[in-house]
Simulated assay, not measured.
Amino acid sequence: MEYPGQPEERQQRVVAEAGDGADAVVSHSKNHQTVGVRDRVTRLAQITAGRGLTVGARGHQTQRPLTPPGQSWESFSAPWHVDVRIAFEVGRAALARPLRPGSTVVILSSGAALGGSPLSGGYAGAKRTQMFLAGCLQRAADARGLGIRFVALVPGQLLTGTAIGEAAAAAYGAERGRPADTVLKEQFPVPLDPAGVARAILAIVSDEDHDKDTALVVTGKGVERA
């Protein structure tokens, strides 16, 4: 799941929706250099003193089929260098610092990780790997008795009011010969927007429900185990 707009706009929007419960938001653009990403993540882990750290990514989904001249290897593999990379770097920094006991690192995944996304190249696999990574990071934290929680939050449906949600609905609607809004209403009768995702992040950081789960799904109906 990504938030539309430039990185600064998106971060402000998430923090505004989440309020004071989530202390920091990490975002990563495919245009960031490798060293810069690692340095920024390390500095953020050093200054984060609160209970919540939310990890997002700004990798661009290329909505094309695999058949030529659709996806190239570069477009297919791009999410691995953005979405997986930022989760990996933040997870390592959280363990190395480490964050204070009681902290929660929320990695924003995608419903594509559950049901696939045939028009989005390697995006679904990258988002699934984020879910696996949350579990691996949790085992590492538990083995060291750090008291840090890692959880992948999976928006289980396309988000209304976002550029990516609208683009995906349009792409799959065109594939089926149906309008985008019809696809959204038929597949997801109870809508989910960025504010709903922000509320889910707050619930994960603040509540003890699902405190043993490393992957959770949020839909228009609420949060449940993946």
Score class of each variant (00 low, 15 high):
1 M>F: 10
2 E>D: 15
2 E>F: 10
3 Y>A: 06
6 Q>V: 14
7 P>T: 10
9 E>P: 04
11 Q>I: 15
12 Q>G: 10
13 R>W: 03
18 A>I: 10
19 G>H: 02
19 G>D: 08
20 D>Q: 12
22 A>S: 08
23 D>Q: 14
31 N>T: 14
32 H>W: 11
33 Q>E: 15
35 V>W: 13
36 G>K: 07
37 V>W: 03
42 T>F: 13
42 T>N: 13
43 R>F: 04
43 R>T: 11
45 A>H: 03
45 A>L: 09
46 Q>D: 15
48 T>G: 02
51 R>V: 06
57 A>R: 01
57 A>F: 06
58 R>W: 08
60 H>A: 13
61 Q>W: 02
61 Q>K: 05
66 L>R: 05
71 Q>D: 08
71 Q>P: 04
74 E>G: 08
79 P>W: 08
79 P>N: 11
81 H>L: 14
82 V>C: 08
83 D>T: 11
84 V>T: 15
87 A>L: 10
88 F>M: 13
92 R>H: 14
95 L>Y: 06
100 R>N: 13
107 I>P: 00
107 I>M: 05
107 I>T: 00
108 L>N: 03
109 S>W: 00
109 S>I: 04
113 A>K: 02
113 A>T: 04
114 L>Q: 11
116 G>E: 12
118 P>S: 13
118 P>I: 10
123 Y>W: 07
126 A>R: 06
127 K>V: 04
130 Q>M: 12
130 Q>G: 08
133 L>S: 04
135 G>K: 03
137 L>I: 06
139 R>L: 08
140 A>L: 12
141 A>F: 05
142 D>V: 09
145 G>M: 11
145 G>A: 12
146 L>S: 05
146 L>H: 08
148 I>K: 09
150 F>R: 00
151 V>L: 02
154 V>M: 07
155 P>F: 02
155 P>Q: 08
156 G>D: 06
156 G>E: 09
157 Q>A: 05
160 T>W: 11
161 G>F: 09
165 G>Y: 03
167 A>R: 14
171 A>L: 08
173 G>E: 05
176 R>M: 12
184 L>V: 01
184 L>Y: 01
186 E>L: 10
191 P>W: 05
194 P>G: 12
195 A>M: 11
195 A>F: 11
200 A>D: 01
203 A>S: 14
205 V>Q: 06
210 H>K: 04
214 T>P: 02
215 A>E: 03
216 L>C: 09
221 K>G: 06
223 V>F: 00
225 R>E: 10
